[in-house]
Amino acid sequence: MTAPVAVASGLTRHYSVKEGLFSKPQTVRALSDLDFTLHPGKTLAVVGESGCGKSTLARLVTMIEPPTSGALELGGKPATPDRWADLRGAVQIVFQDPYGSLNPRQRIGQILSEPLKINRPDMKAADREARAREMLELVGLRPEHYDRYPHMFSGGQRQRIAIGRALMMNPAVLVLDEPVSALDVSIQSAILNLLLDLQEKLDLAYLFISHDLSVVRHIADDIIVMYLGRAIETGTKAQVFAHPMHPYAKALLSATPQADPGGKRNRIKLEGELPSPLADLPGCPFAPRCWKTQDKCRTDRPPLMGDTHRAACWFPE
């Protein structure tokens, strides 16, 4: 197996928030103790509901914020804040909303060449333009689009531009934060195909963040299921979808509507909502909503257990 392009161990991010003027600051545990390994040409999907720490993870991996504790290694080098500037080219991000992530005052050519302008100041303008035009073709746009503004494009085309911009620095890792959830189904499939093509061509590693399990099932190689800032189940796509071990993973899979009107399924109904991330429950974070909860779940936090398919549950399925 080839060397991993990114390795995270014990990645943790806490935020401190103040509720009132005189109250003691409280800690939001947005991400706790996450491990993962990204290999070139592979897609690691991170799934979970809002508030589970998916986006915090994206911010840590793209070096927008330092982790509170834990370490991230990119291409064998530790990604500490003093090395960020050198490593940023290796990790790039595509955001969810292509209407918000492109500057409406810049032409597509400018949007695409800006990363080079900032990170490779010694590069000639003509070279930058050549590279941007090359990229336009790579992501399936036409040469005449170079001089147009973002408002002249549809959502799908904009997302192609955003992907092109992320690829300008030749990254090894692409963080995709819900890249298709703002798009219509017919456009979504074209973007997913593009991502698959690019991955094959450029041997990219994807960190694919999504809440849409049918998309994840299609594109992922490995999966991390998160709940309240913690990984509660990890494994290959086949393992997680065929035999979800953690009750939450099982409930999540069963709650996802499937486009098969005849199919009868046992939907597991979860009661309640996510508990507040301010509360640091001593036991399993899913215990208040779980149907299998026993005393042990409320007092002892289960670690991830298993060899390739791991789940953080005392009583896995």
């Binding site: 189904v185 017919s186 456009i187 499939s189 074209a190 997913l192 195909n193 698959l196 049918s214 486009a259």
Partner: peptide, 16 residues
């Protein structure tokens, strides 16, 4: 319907 990832039979989805 063919563009839905869950109905896909191949790695590449039929796009419109």
């Amino acid at each position: 319907l063919a563009a839905l990832p869950e109905r896909a039979t191949e790695r590449r989805l039929p796009a419109i």
